[in-house]
Amino acid sequence: MRSAMSLIELVFTIVIMGIAVMSLPLILTQVQRNDAFAMQQEAILAAKAKIGDILMYEWDERSFNSTAQRSYVLDTTNGGDAELRRVGITNMRLGHISAENRRKFFDVNTTASAIGADAGDLDDVDDFNGLPPTTLVVTAGEDAGTLDYIFDLNLTTSINYAEDNATYSSNGTLNDFTFNPNNAPATPTNIKVISVTVSGGDQNITLRAFTYNIGESMLLPSRPYQ
């Protein structure tokens, strides 16, 4: 007696193979979507890391006072928002707490600098404007590099001032506020826009962050434990 495949077994085999073949395009499409999502997330995380690094720097080259070891608010000449300028001859502006070691202007009028005015010595945020792109290279092997990326990424950074105009009524009520990060005024405002564009691996993503002219409060000096 010779063993053989029955007709019903053959039918079941054909049906199963047909289902498998029909599922292949869906599986491949989902794999492609997953790969695209992973590449997009990698590009976004690289841009966020770059922005986080830039935000660690001073708002402006003139912000930091080495004697006081703190950052001060700077006088700005653009924006039309007189409420954010110093009040009279004081070193305070509206909203500042009139107390020592709090956020305030320099005692002498000190204006913010133009973007890139200090020749890129990397001591403040806008020094990153116009620098050559940062390239993150794929690691080919265990000892071939220091970063592990799926594909090469190029990070290009630009820094600009953002338009921030406000108008008030005679009683001090805010009537209108115009914020336009796409408009880059030539003279300083109180807001800088950090833009990082990531290209590579079919990605072209731009992330933005904003940093503000607010200075910092002075920390209390340390003292030994009693």
Rank of each mutant, 00 (worst) to 15 (best):
K104H: 13
N165G: 04
M5H: 10
R223K: 11
R85H: 05
T67Q: 12
G79R: 01
L26G: 13
I159T: 04
Y72A: 11
T67G: 10
V31I: 13
N175F: 08
S199R: 07
I16Y: 02
N213Y: 02
V196K: 03
T134A: 12
I8S: 15
R223E: 07
D124H: 10
T146A: 03
L131P: 01
R103N: 10
T139L: 05
A119V: 07
G80M: 03
R62G: 02
G80H: 05
N182C: 03
M39L: 14
S113W: 06
Q203F: 01
R93K: 14
L147S: 08
A119C: 04
P185N: 07
F12T: 15
N190R: 09
N91H: 10
I159Q: 03
T77Q: 08
M92P: 01
G116N: 08
I159N: 05
S113F: 08
F37Q: 15
S66P: 04
T197R: 11
I205W: 06
T157M: 08
G79T: 02
A68E: 11
D107R: 12
P224R: 09
M5R: 12
L28F: 11
T110P: 08
R223Q: 11
S3W: 08
V193I: 09
T13L: 07
P181S: 09
I205V: 12
G145T: 05
S217K: 03
V21Q: 12
N65S: 10
I16L: 15
N183I: 10
T134R: 14
E61G: 14
D202C: 00
D126L: 07
P132E: 05
I14Y: 01
D60N: 03
S113V: 13
Y225R: 04
Y225L: 15
Y57E: 07
L7I: 14
G88W: 05
T76N: 02
D143K: 12
Y168H: 03
